[in-house]
Every structure is written in C-alpha cells, then in structure tokens.
C-alpha cells in the first residue's frame, strides 16, 4: 500500500515537473547549478537587453549576481581587456589593435540602427544626408535655413568612449567634422532626455531607444525603422558585441550562449533590436 502511494506521488511530481513550462524552457538550464558573479560594463545601447537577461537569470538562480554598468564601448573594451569585467559591451567592432593587445574575443548578439533624432516639436523629420553633414559640422547652424524657426541648431554628440559616435561619424557623417560647439552627453539615455527637453536639439541614438519623446529623422526618405535597418535600406547600423578577454569562463559562456539562444534573441527583439539568429 505504502509503496503504491509513494509511486503515485512520484508519478504526480514527475507529471508536474514535466508539465511546468519554466522547466521545459531549457534556455536557462545551464544556470541551474551555477554560482558566482558576472560583471558587465560598456556600451549603453546594450543595457536594456543585458538588464532583462540578467533579471531572468537572477530570478531563477539566486546564487548568481550580475552587475551591469555603462561607460561606453571604449570603456567596455578597455575594462574587459584589463580583466576588470567579465564582459565588455561595445557598439562597434574592437579595433585590430585592441584585439591584438588584449586578446579579445567578440560575440555579436544583435544588430542596431543609429537614428538621427530631433525634438517632437520640430517638423523637420525628413532630411538629406548632405543636410545632416552640414548640421553636425556647424555649417548649417540655424533651423531657418531649413524652413523652420529662427533658432540655432543645438547639436548633441557623445563622449570619446562612445561606439555609437564612432559608427555615426563614419557612416552618417562620412568622417566629417563635428562642430566644436556641440554639446556632449554620456549615454543613450542622456541623449534621449537631452533631445526631448530641447526643442532645437538634434542628436543620434540607438533605434532600440526610440519612443514618443523624440522624433526620428528620415535620411533621403528612409526612416530608421527596424524593418528598414533589417533589410539594409537604412545604412547607419552596426552590430552589438560582447567582448571577453580570451576564452570566456564558464558562467560568462552561459550568459553569452543564453543571449544567443531562442529566448535571448527574443529579448533582443522585444527591446527593439534586430536578432542575429532566427
């Protein structure tokens, strides 16, 4: 009798376990017995995805601590190379020199577009490439010249560590000059709040950060939508990378694999970026 009861219970538990979607999900499985801390720093475009992934992992296994910091792509690469963090995020490829010096390994987990943004009050949301180059170089410094108010254009750019700035400078400005009068901000979040508060501001931001508080500008008729970035119609895009010094350690490996798994890529899509694996 007792044996039967036990068997019955075991059967029920087994059924419950098998039927539980959390356990079936599988992509988080490697973290089950894991333990330790994982330090991530660098690119600020990455933060929403990193945060969501970290939240899910830490919720499942409380023995894992994941810390996420910004600082920019340059900082991410530097800190990963010096062993200060386990993963250094960057919104650009590491340079030959950086890879050689630090022995970096790159893992691309998403593709991101860089949108030019203005304040929603600004009606000029269709511009030509040449106009963008002129605005950022300071040659065109009044909105009146484009047919709006007689107010100066306030150009916002990012600090030296920004990978977004490097990519934007290369692909949108054709390595043209950025005006000395430009204001500097230190992250995507700061860029968004600066533009949303300044009616006469113009800046650039990751497509994943776009929302109602800023207005994306179309370049030669192409709006920076996810669709356009994915199809390659919108040219100012870049990969988002995780960099490790040499081969990643076990926990780091799990994290990278997780972001490249089905569930990880779903997070990437949910946060407004383009997946690298279907």
């Amino acid at each position: 009798m007792r044996v039967k009861l036990t068997l019955c219970l075991v059967g029920i538990i087994a059924l419950l376990v098998a039927g539980n979607p959390l356990v079936i999900a599988g992509d988080l499985d490697p973290f089950l017995g894991a333990k330790g801390t994982l330090r991530i720093a660098g690119g600020t475009a990455h933060i929403p995805v990193m945060k969501e992934a970290a939240k899910r992992i830490m919720r499942m296994n409380r023995n894992i601590k994941i810390t996420i910091a910004g600082g920019g792509s340059g900082l991410g690469i530097k800190q990963a190379g010096e062993g200060l963090v386990d993963i250094g995020d960057s919104g650009r490829k590491a340079t030959e020199d950086e890879i050689k010096r630090y022995g970096l390994k790159m893992f691309k987990f998403a593709i991101d577009g860089i949108a030019i943004v203005v304040n929603p009050e600004n009606p000029l949301i269709r511009m030509k490439k040449s106009e963008i180059i002129d605005i950022f170089s300071g040659k065109l410094n009044n909105w009146k010249e484009l047919g709006w108010k007689d107010r100066e254009t306030n150009v916002y750019t990012r600090d030296a560590s920004s990978g977004t700035r490097k990519v934007f400078w290369k692909k949108a400005l054709k390595k043209g000059e950025i005006a000395k009068t430009a204001n500097f901000v230190k992250s995507h979040g700061a860029m968004k709040s600066a533009i949303s508060r300044d009616p006469y501001g113009i800046g650039f931001i990751s497509v994943g950060y776009l929302d109602d508080t800023v207005a994306p500008v179309s370049l030669d008729g192409v709006f920076p939508t996810l669709e356009n970035v994915r199809k390659g119609n919108y040219k100012i895009s870049r990969g988002l990378y995780m960099n490790t010094k040499g081969e990643p350690s076990e926990l780091t490996r799990f994290f990278i694999d997780y972001l490249l798994s089905k569930e990880g890529q779903k997070i990437v899509a949910e946060k407004g970026f383009i997946v690298v694996k279907q």
């Binding site: 920019g72 340059g74 900082l75 530097k78 950086e98 600090d159 030296a160 009068t181 500097f184 230190k186």
Partner: peptide, 20 residues
C-alpha cells in the same frame, strides 16, 4: 550663453578611453 568644458569635466569625459 556658450557651452564650455572645464578641465575636470574633460578628465571625466576622457578617462573612459584607452590607457595607451
């Protein structure tokens, strides 16, 4: 009314770049 950068802010902005 011009924007400007101080030495301290400059250090804070540059410190994230490469050591070399």
């Amino acid at each position: 009314s011009d924007a400007a950068r101080t030495l301290t802010a400059h250090i804070a902005l540059i410190i994230a770049s490469d050591y070399e």
